[in-house]
């Protein structure tokens, strides 16, 4: 637990310390800094933690909170505000770990496989919309960044979709008993 908190704190610290470098370019701002902050929140939750409360059953409430946070930080005006207002910038460093990273990890652990599949499909299509929007928009979407930068951001989203879908699709081609064996192995560890 201790080392997880330490790494999470280090990531947040690095995101703050190097924020001027990271935020100068929308690609590193949105595709590096924001995911790292979410990751730092997820690190705070030990693996396979399933909340035993009745309100968190199925992970729905937690995932809705995480999706709300993601939706907010997908708004171009939120990104602009983070760059123009210190208050929003601070809120970014607090909310991405605590209101997206933590509930996403907790909710995911207790989510039904169908819900997980649904969220994965949503995530990929949303990334696709982002890629299309930023590569094709004829106007500046973020006041803080150049049109040529936002186009690169669009292609960045495209690369992310490629690797994320690879990550999620590859296991589907593995033989089914490979999963069964591996789960059998972990559960049959001698005490």
């Amino acid at each position: 637990m201790m080392w997880r908190v330490t790494i999470a704190a280090l990531i947040v610290f690095a995101c703050i310390a190097f924020r001027h470098v990271l935020e100068r370019d929308p690609v590193t701002h949105i595709l590096v800094q924001l995911p790292l902050l979410i990751l730092s929140g997820a690190l705070l939750v030990p693996p396979n933690t399933v909340l035993a409360y009745s309100w968190s059953k199925g992970g729905y409430a937690l995932l809705i909170i995480a999706v709300t946070g993601i939706a907010f930080w997908m708004l171009p005006r939120s990104i602009d505000s983070a760059l123009s207002s210190d208050l929003v910038e601070v809120a970014k460093f607090v909310s991405l770990p605590l209101f997206i990273g933590v509930p996403l990890k907790l909710g995911w652990a207790s989510a039904h496989p169908i819900l997980r599949g649904f969220l994965k499909a949503e995530a990929l299509s949303m990334l696709g919309v982002m890629a299309f929007l930023y590569t094709h928009a004829p106007v500046r979407i973020c006041n803080s960044y150049l049109v040529s930068d936002q186009e690169r951001l669009g292609y960045g989203f495209l690369i992310v979709i490629f690797f994320v879908s690879l990550l999620w699709v590859t296991p589907l081609f593995a033989p089914r008993n490979a999963f069964r064996n591996s789960s059998a192995r972990t559960s049959s560890v001698p005490a």
Binding site: Y60, A61, T68, F72
Partner: peptide, 20 residues
Amino acid sequence: KAFFASIAAAVFGATFLWNA
């Protein structure tokens, strides 16, 4: 309880995004 918690989260989320 999980159902009501989800509704509460959804109402909060929708209100928040509506304002934002």
